[in-house]
Amino acid sequence: MQQIFVNEGPVDNNFIITGEDMHHLVRVVRLKRGEIIRVSVATGVNFLCEVSDITDDSLIATVKEEVPSTELSNKIYLFQALPKGDKMETIIEKSVELGVYEIIPVEMKNCIVKLDDKKKKSKLTRYQTIAATAAKQSKRSIIPQVHDVMSYKAAFEYAKNLDILLLPYESKNGMKDTFDVLSTIKEGQSIGVFIGPEGGFDQSEIDLVKDSCNIISLGRRILRTETAAICTLSMLMLKCEV
């Protein structure tokens, strides 16, 4: 089933779809009258709609029924250190599938990648497109936002307003700390997750956040940065899915 995202709700029980979405559905997918699509409004409300009419420049989708949200009960913010190569694209795709709410790329001291302003802008456009595609594929109710690249200090300031902060690192009690923290998470709480770069967190970065973050373990093995992100979000999805 095809899915699209729109900004406004239906008018007289109909969505009028134009532009790129119309072109994709009609010219690429070749939808016909009578077929069903899923339409998600920016507020997170979802509808199953029947294609009732197709014109030269629009597609009319008539609401058949409202369907439940696919969002987690908690908003999860991923603060991801910039990785090398195309790993960030994989992290964005998989984290959107796992239910992340926002993704914040972060420059940390041991990041191998250093982006200038021009590259940051082009990367952001690409990243947001990947998030939108992953949201459609996984039938999300919203498209998670990918932020501009932040410095580590700016990211921490942004995260301070969240209810719970998690940082996978060397946890003195191993997985017990992880289980203990996960058990305290309540429905509706916002959660920030800091994932370090290939070179690991600098000690100064740990010192900055250690009084505010819950330091957790992801097991005895050393995980790649992209694996650490997916692992942490998987554990949170298991806890937060209701």
Rank of each mutant, 00 (worst) to 15 (best):
E66W: 01
E66K: 14
A61W: 14
I130W: 00
A131Q: 00
V67I: 15
V106G: 08
L115Q: 07
V96D: 03
A131R: 02
V106E: 06
L124H: 01
D56N: 15
V96R: 04
E107Y: 07
M88H: 01
I76M: 05
L59I: 07
K64V: 13
L82M: 13
T129H: 12
T55V: 10
V63H: 07
L82D: 02
K94W: 04
S52D: 10
E65P: 08
V106Q: 09
E66D: 09
L98Q: 01
E71N: 02
V106A: 05
N74K: 04
A132H: 10
A134Q: 04
V41P: 06
P68N: 04
V113P: 07
L59R: 04
E102H: 12
L98G: 05
V96S: 05
K123P: 05
K119M: 10
V63L: 04
R140Y: 06
K84V: 03
L115V: 01
T62W: 12
I76H: 07
I54A: 05
E97H: 09
K64F: 05
V63D: 08
R140T: 07
K87A: 08
N46D: 14
D117A: 14
D56F: 13
V100F: 12
E89Y: 01
V51F: 10
I92D: 01
I130G: 04
K94A: 03
V51H: 09
T133N: 13
C111P: 12
N110P: 12
K118V: 14
T125A: 10
I91A: 01
I142D: 06
Q128T: 01
K64R: 15
D116F: 06
Q128H: 02
V67Q: 06
D53E: 15
E97K: 10
P83H: 01
S138M: 10
E107T: 14
K119W: 00
K118R: 15
S69V: 05
V100E: 02
Q137K: 09
K84M: 05
R140Q: 12
E93K: 14
K123G: 01
V106S: 08
I76T: 03
Y101W: 15
D117C: 03
L59S: 08
V113L: 14
A81I: 01
S73W: 02
I130K: 02
I112K: 11
Y101D: 03
D86K: 00
K118W: 11
K114H: 11
K118C: 06
T55E: 13
I104L: 12
S73E: 15
S141A: 11
M88R: 03
